[in-house]
Design a protein around this nucleic acid. Structure first.
Lengths: 93, 93
DNA sequence: TAAATATTTAGATAATTATCTAATTATATA
DNA sequence: TATATAATTAGATAATTATCTAAATATTTA
């Protein structure tokens, strides 16, 4: 989960995940949605891949990225386990 | 959620959350569980507080920290929305 | 009230990260 | 086959982060 938390601790990467919710996209299409350079987007995609949050598939000269949700199970479980813990739910101040 | 993701993107802070699952603890007790200096733990506790993941309450000279799980709702919802998206669940390679 | 204990704040620093431009690799097309 | 297009890799850099020691603040106790 180490890599997951790193991957999602960045607004650009979270936005990429949001975009991939809708449809699979090429690196170029993803890049076009941001003001950031292509190499930077490539770097972000690599971190998402390392975290197993996306899958890449090369088709000709294009590389298609798609969401991989299997890793989310563990994270959700961890968060639920935190939620269930203790009786201190919803304390204020 | 920005602050949440930052807060949990650190092994020390995730371990602090784990510890607080069991019971409320003072800053000193938390600090004793790590090899890290007290000021560093204080810094981590502050980030957790900024993310609303913990609550602190001063009792005499001690400061007790406890888990606050209310923020987890939003995060879990976001992860579920990713999970439900697309039909690309569990792709390999 | 002076000393001890608990915690945080301040200031400095090494490591990590997100970004850029330039160069490289791979594929498609004229 | 030469050129254009898509994407990544390499190398550099500014910003951010986690850590430290020293100092400050707050509280308790002798």
């Amino acid at each position: 989960m180490k890599k997951f938390f790193k991957a999602v601790d960045d607004i650009t990467r979270r936005e990429i995940l949001e975009m991939l919710k809708t449809k699979d996209m090429t690196a170029g299409e993803i890049s076009d949605a941001f003001q950031i350079s292509k190499p930077s987007i490539s770097y972000h995609l690599d971190l998402l891949k390392q975290a197993d949050l996306v899958i890449s598939e090369k088709k000709g000269q294009y590389v298609y990225y798609s969401l991989n949700t299997s890793v989310l199970e563990d994270v959700i479980s961890w968060l639920m386990s935190l939620k269930k813990a203790g009786g201190t739910e919803d304390k204020q101040k």
